[in-house]
Design a protein around this nucleic acid. Structure first.
Lengths: 345, 345
DNA sequence: ATCGCCTATGTAATCCTTTACATCGGGATT
DNA sequence: AATCCCGATGTAAAGGATTACATAGGCGAT
């Protein structure tokens, strides 16, 4: 005697109405008389009916859900963005499925079916690298779920996006260091093939050259946005002969790893080196010393991306194909705290 | 001319076989001859066919997906747990849907349908408070998706769980402070009705009393696990006449907020106050000073919870109802770094 | 040659909702 | 009184995949 969950038929039987009336009561109550409504609600109670989402999705050809592809959930940077997305989407009646793409990047086999139009109604991608082999580009425009990039983007793919001006932001950070009097400034980069890394480095380099300064190779450190890579950079810096007096880090995590490691080695920040971060994580303001960094409006980015996606989903595939592709660039601020100061001496 | 995504029928037609053969080729290739297989793969290519997940789920009465309910994605504590879950689940062929429960707690209306068996095949709940009005307890055991609690749990609900011994851990932290010579020790609590708060406070209090010390009300600070509440506690501490020489914080975030704020007020940690955290977030080791804290095996918790859920999903509803409910308690360590020292003087 | 078995394939029922269309009364309009 | 309209309800057709069951053909054993 294998149990079957109550279906709409069971409810209809108990209520003494048709399945159509039950369905209407549940999704368009205004189409149904007061009396029937009461009957149906009662029957739902009695049977313990829950809707079968798969059946509904199949029939409606829509899921009322969108997916967010995050490169690395362990990175606290993304939390606020997600909450911005969730806020807008939940108001619009959509569920948000969050997926970490890290396990997938190696192995396309594990790649979820999210991308096809019939698993989610749309996609927000926070991972610019994901599109290896145009993973996001499969299918025809008509079968492809509408998507928007947020924060990161992919240079080979023309898609709607919400970003900040990374180049300008990095320039601002550099100008700050330069105006403090630094002449020997290093850069701690993110992962080499990341679009943010490229943009930020480009902006930083441009600002240095604009000030008539040099950025020799030995002051450029490789990192990957993580704490650990900040630690490694600090070790290099500490071991070097010819050190920069200030470092621009492409992420707060790296900046904090850098400072933390210097602290272990009894090097004082900002007395001996100035450090600028990027992102303005929650903790940046509470770090010791409080971090000078580029503030990203993360919640706003999330909300904007969600709204943009909602707009795109309201378009027909043809319209999506033929209308201009929206690109939104949000303004950022440099917030000056205590990790930067004039160079020693 | 409204476009329809290619279905299995279209593939069948192109390949010149039945829909059954297409389906078999795609999900049980060994049932099908080499020749047919080739035909079908070709047709799939040609048509650009993607499976319709809703239809499959409807027919199979299963989704190959599980949901994780997280109280607050902004809390970096959860990231590693999620990655542990994702690792095990993805190996087992399941997708993982992550949902932040914060927006829902106020407003049951937004509550997703995840909980009924037909949206996901199982549930991992990291939020012990969620079950207000027994939200998780709806339906009958047969219609309810199998679930397991991880980290947090609900005192009114008997469910499988993977946790740590919070009470013992808090005791260990206290004993460390006591053995350093502290006699006046404060406690910074998490949210008042949280199970972790209760367990950790209980353990801390017990250790204090066991050492023949007192824990007066004025040394007990209210918090909510966030940085901000650590900041507030620091302000209180700083403003008070009669201060403890050490503080046990129920989360690393609060500990860091506390230390950060003291730093702003030029109070040195651990010289003037010792601080112990709880969780051992990534950044704890890199904070200034590096944080003495309770290490939680977060990835292991996630993996264990995932495996436990997998086991439960393999049971029939009857078996689930009648077998003993598994409860796994993982061991924790105290890791001693630089934020604790003997009391001043 | 006949029977039985096994493999490969096809046919069609099924999973559960939503919704286009048909139907039925009853009130308002002429 | 006949007509029209409108609101409430019911009937039944999708929607796309899986799979139990039926069938067909090939092969070996007798």
């Amino acid at each position: 005697m294998t149990f079957r969950a109550p279906s709409i038929r069971d409810v209809a039987k108990v209520a003494g109405v048709s399945t159509a009336s039950v369905s209407r009561t549940l999704s368009n109550p205004e189409l149904v008389s007061e009396a029937t409504r009461a009957l149906v609600f009662d029957a739902v109670q009695q049977t313990g009916y829950r809707i079968n989402v798969s059946a509904r999705n199949l029939r409606k050809q829509a899921t009322s859900a969108i997916a967010v592809l995050v490169p690395n959930l362990a990175n606290p940077f993304f939390a606020r963005i997600l909450s911005g997305i969730a806020e807008v989407m939940s108001d619009a009646g959509f569920s948000v499925l969050i997926t970490d793409t890290t396990p997938m990047s190696l192995d396309d086999h594990h790649f979820p079916v999210f991308l096809s139009l019939n698993q989610t109604d749309g996609l927000i991608v926070l991972d610019g690298l994901l599109a290896r082999d145009a993973l996001l580009n499969r299918g025809t425009p008509a079968t492809r779920a509408p998507m928007v990039f947020a924060c990161e983007w992919n240079e080979n793919l023309v898609r709607p996006s919400v970003t900040i001006d990374n180049e300008a932001a990095a320039g601002r950070a550099m100008d700050h260091l330069i105006s403090l009097g630094h002449r020997r400034i290093g850069v701690l980069n993110g992962p080499r093939d990341n679009v943010l890394t490229k943009a930020r480095f480009k902006g930083a380099e441009a600002a240095i050259h604009a000030a008539g300064l040099e950025l020799p190779q030995r002051w450029i450190y490789d990192g990957d946005f993580t704490l650990q890579s900040g630690v490694r950079a600090a070790a290099h810096w500490h071991g070097a002969q010819d050190r920069p007096t200030a470092i621009f880090c492409a992420s707060d995590e790296m900046a904090m790893g850098f400072i933390g490691e210097l602290n272990q080695r009894a090097v004082k920040v900002p007395d001996e080196v100035s450090v600028v971060g990027f992102d303005d994580l929650e903790i940046a303001a509470h770090f010791v010393p409080p971090l000078t960094t580029i503030h990203q409006p993360r919640e706003a980015i999330g909300r904007a991306a969600a709204r943009m996606l909602l707009d795109r989903m309201n378009l027909s595939p043809q319209e999506r194909e033929h209308q201009p592709v929206p690109k939104l660039v949000l303004p950022v601020d440099l917030v000056i705290r205590k990790s930067t100061a004039p160079p020693p001496g």
